[in-house]
């Protein structure tokens, strides 16, 4: 049991860290601001999510575990909102060419 838990934890950790790495790579390699924002928002929050997940089995009690989840949710909320704001802030009118309707 504990081996499985440990293995899962480490796996999740690896995934989480990998996503963080991906976010950083994207931040470094993507060509423009908005593309980089994609990387930042999605990868890092996912990375944090997996890390939270990895920590859950080790949490002392359910409250700690919930707290971890809360932290993740809060981070995600903030990151998603702020990324939109940054995206909008970095947006110049002429960038928007395509105009498909819904």
């Amino acid at each position: 049991m504990s081996v499985i838990v440990t293995a899962t934890t480490i796996l999740l950790l690896l995934i989480g860290v990998a996503f963080f790495l991906a976010g950083s790579m994207g931040l470094l390699r993507f060509p423009d601001v908005h593309a980089r924002l994609h990387a930042l928002t999605k990868a890092d929050n996912l990375g944090l999510g997996f890390i939270t997940l990895a920590l859950l089995p080790q949490a002392a009690d359910v409250w700690i575990a919930s707290k971890l989840v809360m932290i993740w949710l809060l981070t995600m909320l903030a990151a998603a909102t702020v990324s939109q704001l940054i995206a909008r802030s970095a947006l110049h009118e002429e960038d928007v060419k395509q105009e498909p309707g819904p």
């Binding site: 963080f20 931040l27 601001v33 890092d44 990375g47 981070t75 940054i86 802030s89």
Partner: peptide
Amino acid sequence: ADRMMGAQLAATAGVAILA
């Protein structure tokens, strides 16, 4: 905005590290 993203990333990573 690019630079600002760095701070954003650091905050998220900081949360992860603290966790």
